[in-house]
Design a binder for these strands. Structure first.
Length: 219
DNA sequence: TCGTGATCATAA
DNA sequence: TTATGATCACGA
């Protein structure tokens, strides 16, 4: 399945609206996990599969030829996001010369295909319904805000202050651990400029921001 | 109830 | 190990 344009991809994605994950799994002869505790990325990977995304775990948009990133978004029955949205790893080394304009975060967020899923915890996985997918691009104001959050983080990282940085920083983009567990370590710049070991971090979109995206789209 | 920090699976 | 896909779960 190759999509010629973002609109064609959107049209195809919207053809799945209203179906439950159980119905879609039956159609593709996939097994629905009974719980997501040990399959946390399953919903996103299933949607990638049926929509024909091919980037795998490369640090680039899911549909590189379209410049479109696919994101599932768990929502409650009122359409409110239930979780933050992971965007990308926070670069901690060799960040001299790294700018917003050539960042992975920007490349992914410049064009997103959101696929909301009604996914309150009390709903069995197989009964969770795909809501209406939509394409989203940040306004210039939104991009400025994203850029500001991104640059604020990179300043701290470049100053060797990664350990002082926590999830409270950032109006839209926040930084949180992104690791197998709290003992995972990666290289970063230390306070004195030497290399230190620290917990890998990721950029996440706050739920309040994705809530605004939903409201803009659906009123 | 919500936000932060912790965690789980998998591919390359 | 690092990237992807995320959700879990505890304390305020």
């Amino acid at each position: 399945m190759q999509h010629e344009t973002p609109q064609a991809l959107l049209d195809y994605a919207q053809s799945f609206a209203g179906f439950t994950l159980g119905e879609l799994c039956a159609r593709y002869k996939e097994q629905v996990p009974q719980q997501l505790l040990h399959k946390k990325g399953w919903v996103g990977q299933f949607l990638e599969m049926i929509l024909g995304a091919t980037s795998g775990s490369l640090a680039q948009p899911d549909f590189p030829e379209l410049g479109v990133e696919l994101k599932t978004l768990p929502i409650d029955e009122q359409g409110r996001p239930l979780e933050s949205t992971y965007v990308s790893v926070v670069p901690l080394m060799n960040i001299q010369g790294l700018r917003w304009e050539n960042s992975v975060v920007r490349h992914k967020l410049m064009h997103v295909l959101w696929i909301p899923i009604v996914a309150s915890r009390e709903i069995p996985i197989e009964d969770r319904q795909v809501a209406m997918p939509f394409l989203w691009q940040p306004t210039s104001e939104e991009e400025q805000a994203l850029k500001q959050d991104f640059e604020d983080v990179l300043v701290q990282v470049s100053l060797g202050r990664i350990e002082q940085l926590d999830a409270r920083l950032g109006d839209i983009l926040q930084v949180r651990p992104k690791a197998a567990n709290s003992k995972a370590l990666t290289d970063a710049i230390g306070p004195d400029g030497a290399t230190i070991k620290t917990l890998p971090r990721g950029f996440y979109l706050r739920p309040q921001f994705t809530k605004r995206c939903l409201q803009q789209q659906f009123g």
